[in-house]
């Protein structure tokens, strides 16, 4: 019996017949969780759809106050991070520990880059009094509706950023465990399900970018 077989056997919980069944159960469980996340974000997306249907012009005006360059760069950063996450999972599957650790760290760094850019954008919104609340000010008759857009903007991007922070935390734990040699081609389920979560958060942003940044650019 090789070392990796022994490691695999010790990773098998007693209530599963095989590692394959255990892996399948974990992956399915993660997908069920992600479906609840779809519902969670879906509620705010529905709110966005309803208010944008009510106030299309105000939403288009408000959208032009977002920085399209920073938004597009952040989209690219997240897509890069999804690639590095996929390559980390690949590394864990083929037993390349250096690739696993390297790509996990890269993914964390890209996630931090995203949050840094987001922080710059948020700071700019505070400076321009576009944060909903008592300090909000916007010229023109549409001020209330524009404030509504920014409420939705901060709710959506804020929850997305919270998911990124949690994801970065999860991946950091994976880096430590990978360094200790916990994962092998036979057992790397945590890397894979964390990858599912990371890609899901990327998908949320794939929708947020056009819905928040790209409406009303053609006027």
């Amino acid at each position: 019996m090789s070392d990796s077989d022994a490691l695999a056997r010790s990773s098998l919980q007693h209530h599963f017949d095989s590692l394959e069944q255990q892996h399948e159960a974990s992956s399915l469980g993660m997908w069920v969780f992600l479906v609840t996340e779809v519902m969670f974000f879906g509620g705010i997306f529905t709110a966005y759809v309803v208010y944008r249907t009510f106030y299309p012009a105000a939403f288009a005006d408000a959208s032009r106050h977002l920085d399209i360059t920073l938004g597009a760069v952040n989209t690219a950063v997240l897509i890069c991070s999804s690639l590095t996450m996929a390559l980390a999972v690949h590394g864990s599957q083929v037993g390349n520990r250096k690739a696993l650790i390297g790509f996990l760290i890269l993914t964390v760094l890209l996630g931090l880059t995203f949050l840094g850019i987001k922080a710059v954008e948020y700071a700019e919104k505070f400076e321009h009094h576009l944060v909903p609340g008592s300090a909000f000010s916007y010229p023109g008759p549409d001020a209330r509706q524009v404030q509504l857009f920014f409420s939705v903007y901060f709710a959506m991007t804020g929850l997305h950023a919270l998911h990124m922070i949690i994801g970065i935390g999860v991946l950091s734990v994976l880096v430590v465990k990978a360094c200790r040699g916990v994962y092998s081609p036979a057992y790397h389920t945590p890397v894979e399900v964390s990858g599912l979560y990371w890609h899901f958060v990327d998908i949320v942003w794939i929708f947020l970018f056009p819905l928040l940044y790209l409406i009303g650019r053609h006027h």
């Binding site: 590692l19 394959e20 992956s27 036979a186 057992y187």
Partner: peptide, 8 residues
Amino acid sequence: MAGHVVPK
């Protein structure tokens, strides 16, 4: 073993 290895 567990999971399908997708080519890079």
